[in-house]
Design a protein around this nucleic acid. Structure first.
Length: 856
RNA sequence: GGGCGCAUAGCUCAGCGGGAGAGCACCGGCCUUACAAGCCGGGGGUCGUAGGUUCGAAACCUACUGCGCCCACCA
């Protein structure tokens, strides 16, 4: 349909000006496991708007669409399906598993693609990404090899966040800390009674005591000074462990003595390293107690916690228990189970130099972060980055390209290297963290490590538009890899948006039940309405609340635009004829043309700053308030005036609509496409030129006259409304005064807009309204054909009087203050003085009008 | 525990040193030939609290209160 036409019309193959810089944008991947999320619709709206404008400006645009995380998500989804079927993926083998994944992709890819299409984008996300898999693997392997050869990747036995359910290590970023109600158990080590030396330690994880290799106290803690250096018996095991002094211990917490389990606690690991303690691992990869030689071997960690506590209790060693004890425990982001610190052999990336460079790129201004306030967060993260554990013990993802030989050889292979043949060689079983491959996005998608023409032309990319929530995970990694691999940061600008929230600003979540399916809204209100709603709420870096009613409001805006265009077209609006010279135009024409020009520069400027909310608002008010409510009404009068006037008005209508539709196109592509092609008869708005402001000075006189007309008409309408005169009912009236501002030229318009007939014969005014205009007071004498509602009129005037008196009080107060008149800038004082004069005049006028009212 | 951010109309948010704004909601009147998915008019806020800076503060500073987010190894 319409969308397809754009593609056919050349949205992706349009001829471009070669002198314009190319515009490259990185597309964050959608999550395909759930139905399309509103957050993706939001992000897509922003990206598409920015790109469409660039294309209209003549830039060669390129999206770098991605599916990497999504691809990973599919793997996870398939694994879950397998689990539901009772199949253990470990037993089916890697090849069979991958086969299942492809099966899923083949079944669902088309559907997802269809959903994306309905949102009006032109990129075949799914297919793109899946065909990129192989190429991506080459990039990953090349990058790994390079880092490895540079000595930045190393293998080490470290404490990692271990997920027993996934049987894999996790990066810090994948761990979520949650407050949980646990228990704090204090237990006695050493002698169970007073027969010998003992020491009391406290823990929330009793089961780890089996792996204790020391008890630590603070070096300055006099209570234990005598015991430091001695050994004490570890209950249940019979092992003797030393009492050591380490300044990590907080003497004020608990008893001031800490059990040390180096293989199962990050702090203890450090203490263990400092004191050269043994580091026995007491749990297997599924979180079961193992290799302790005690009766607890084989127990799950949580069962063991209870069993060991009770065993200690039986020995009278439990001296205190606090339950519930609120403390923070790391949970796996995916499985939502408590992670277990575990000692294991992992691959690490030394990020010191890369992180520094990533920070400096922003510090130097080479890369801009929008909004700038969020740069602080970026620095917080980048300046405190620890070495990154890049290995995962998962079954999906890019395998670590390291091979081990039968005699202890270890070789790292690049993408073009042959895998070593021969008996006994095997590849490392681990795969790389998702973010390792995702971090290569900006150049891997352009063909790196090959030096492709695309890479030369489109790297570095122009802008990354993504959510602030992903700044740490993804952006920082792309920055590091880009600078390392391409010697240039991957983007010139990082534009961050917020999260889509519900109408009360609450986070959307399944448990809260406030999620929305954007496709339902698209079906019901149209893609344009959804996009406009999202864009209209998009202040840089801030969250975006959405609500179905607001989407409906956006749809009404589209309808308004539709009707306005329809009306203009039916009255001959055209772009075929040039807009007549200024001197042939009316004040209304000049005013709306000037306003249009101002709108162009405003919208254009806001686009540069990613101020989507502001530019949407400007367009909304221009279309609705200025164009529809005033100019179209004035144009009706002009068209009715005769053919000459009408002929001059038509190109103005056409021009204003032409510009507005172009400006709106990035926000609401569908409706503008339809209206614009009808208006102009041209092929497609997608490849039209972006408007540029003329920069010509606005006609201040015309603007002032139109402003006067608006104020006059509004005052008369207000009087009519207060007097209960039906809007459709014309009343006779006589206008006088205020002509020096050119109102006389517009009397006809005022009469039409305010429904005033000529006074005619036997004109007997029953009321008069005075409207203060910049250069004089306009008097409107009205024949209401009967007695006026004096009470209503008195109320109306009293309200105006009160406002004027308040204004007088405020301005007079300032002017009476000598400090104000002497210290404030002259123009401010002059302005206040002018306001005061206006207030005085208003009070005189209104007071007189009140006095003239008949007494009741 | 550390850091950051936000408190403005019933709701969601702009404004960020010189006249309190928008959308929606609300009240009243209109089927006025582009549009009732509309038009016209209107009501509504001591800008979180308390101090300070300034001729002048919603805006700048300080403290407090209440929310939100991020980071974090507290046994």
């Amino acid at each position: 349909m319409l969308y397809q036409r754009w593609v056919d019309a050349g949205y992706f193959t349009a001829d471009v000006d070669s002198d314009k810089p190319p515009f490259t944008i990185v597309i964050p991947p959608p999550n395909v496991t759930s139905s399309l999320h509103i957050g993706h619709a939001f992000e897509h709206s922003l990206i598409d708007a920015v790109t469409r404008r660039k294309r209209m400006q003549g830039c060669e645009t390129l999206w770098l669409p991605g599916m990497d995380h999504a691809s990973i998500a599919v793997h996870a989804l398939v694994e879950k399906q397998l689990a539901d079927e009772g199949t253990d993926r470990r037993e089916m083998g890697r090849e069979a598993f991958v086969e299942r994944v492809w099966q899923w992709k083949n079944e669902h890819g088309g559907k997802i693609l269809g959903q994306m299409r309905r949102l009006g984008d032109g990129v075949d996300w799914t297919r793109e990404a899946f065909t990129l898999d192989e190429q991506r693997s080459r990039a990953v392997q090349a990058m790994f090899k390079r880092l490895y050869d540079d000595g930045l990747i190393y293998r080490a036995e470290r404490l990692v966040n271990w997920s027993p359910a996934l049987r894999s290590g996790l990066s810090d970023a994948e761990v979520e800390h949650k407050e949980v109600e646990g228990e704090l158990v204090s237990m006695r080590y050493g002698a169970a009674d007073d027969s010998g030396p003992s020491i009391v330690v406290a823990t929330t994880r009793v089961e780890t005591m089996l792996g204790d290799t020391a008890v630590a106290v603070h070096p300055d803690d006099e209570r234990y000074a005598a015991m430091v250096g001695t050994e004490i018996e570890l209950p249940l095991t019979g092992r003797k462990i030393p009492i050591i002094a380490d300044k990590h211990v907080d003497p004020k917490f608990g008893t001031g003595a800490v059990k040390v389990t180096p293989a199962h606690d990050p702090n203890d690991f450090e203490i263990g390293q400092r004191h050269n303690l043994p580091m026995p691992t007491i749990m297997d990869e599924q979180g079961r107690i193992a290799d302790t030689g005690t009766e607890f071997d084989g127990l799950d960690r949580f069962e063991a916690r209870v069993a060991i506590r009770e065993a200690l209790r039986a020995q009278g060693r439990i001296v205190a228990e606090k339950r519930p004890y609120l403390h923070s425990v790391g949970h796996s982001e995916r499985g939502n189970e408590p992670i277990e610190p575990r000692l294991s052999l992992q691959w690490f990336l030394n990020v010191d130099g890369m992180a520094k460079a990533a920070g400096d790129a922003v510090r130097s201004g080479e890369v801009a972060i929008n909004p700038p306030e969020l740069a602080k967060r970026y620095f917080d993260w980048v300046d405190n980055l620890h070495d990154w554990c890049i290995s995962r013990q998962l079954w999906w993802g890019h395998r670590i390209p390291v091979w081990y030989g039968p005699n202890g050889e270890m070789v790292c292979l690049g993408p073009d290297d042959e895998a070593p043949a021969g008996e006994g060689w095997r590849q490392d079983e681990d795969v790389l963290d998702t973010w390792f491959s995702s971090g290569l996005w900006p150049f891997a998608t352009l063909g790196w490590p090959e030096q492709t023409p695309d890479l030369a032309r489109f790297y570095p990319t122009s802008v990354l538009i993504t959510g602030y929530d992903i700044l740490f995970f993804w952006v920082i990694r792309m920055m590091m890899f880009g600078i390392y691999g391409m010697e240039q940061p991957p983007f010139r600008t990082i534009a961050l948006h917020g999260m889509v929230r519900d109408q009360y600003g609450k986070k959307m979540s399944k448990s809260r039940g406030n999620t929305v399916d954007p496709l339902l809204w698209v079906d019901q209100y149209g893609a344009d309405a959804l996009r406009f709603t999202l864009l209209r709420g998009a202040n840089p870096g801030a969250d975006v609340p959405v609500n179905e009613e607001w989407v409906d409001g956006s749809r009404r805006f589209g309808t308004k635009l539709w009707n306005a265009t329809r009306f203009a077209l039916s009255n001959g609006a055209t772009v075929a004829d040039p807009v007549p010279a200024r001197e042939e135009l009316t004040d209304a024409d000049r005013w709306i043309l000037d306003r249009t020009d101002a709108l162009v520069s405003e919208v254009d400027g806001q686009f540069e700053n990613f101020e989507f909310a502001k530019l949407s608002e400007a367009l909304y008010h221009f279309v609705w308030d200025e164009f529809c409510d005033w100019y179209l009404e004035l144009a009706k009068v002009q068209i009715a005036e005769g053919e000459a006037r009408a002929a001059a008005t038509r190109p103005v209508l056409g021009h204003v609509l032409d510009v507005v539709l172009r400006l709106l196109h990035p926000l609401t592509p569908f409706i503008t496409e339809s209206l614009w092609t009808t208006l102009t008869g041209q092929e497609s708005l997608v490849v039209a030129d972006w408007p540029t402001a003329t920069g010509a000075p606005a006609d201040a006189t015309a603007a002032a006259r139109i402003d006067a007309v608006q104020r006059l008409v509004t005052e008369i309408r207000r009087f009519r409304s207060d007097q209960g005169i039906k809007p459709g009912q014309a009343v006779r009236a006589q206008l006088s005064g205020g002509f020096e501002v050119g109102i006389s030229d517009h009397e006809r318009a005022v009469r039409v807009l305010a429904r005033l007939d000529e006074p005619g014969e036997a004109f007997a005014p029953t009321a008069s309204i005075e409207v203060a205009l910049p250069t004089g007071t306009m008097t409107v004498r009205i024949d209401t054909s009967g007695a006026i509602d004096v009470a209503a009129e008195r109320k109306r005037l009293a309200k105006d009087l009160a406002a004027a008196q308040k204004e007088l009080g405020q301005t007079q107060g300032k002017l009476d203050n000598p400090k104000f008149t002497s210290k404030a800038p002259a123009e401010v004082v002059a302005k206040i003085e002018a306001r005061k004069q206006t207030a005085v005049a208003d009070i005189d006028r209104i007071t007189a009008a009140l006095a003239a009212l008949p007494q009741e």
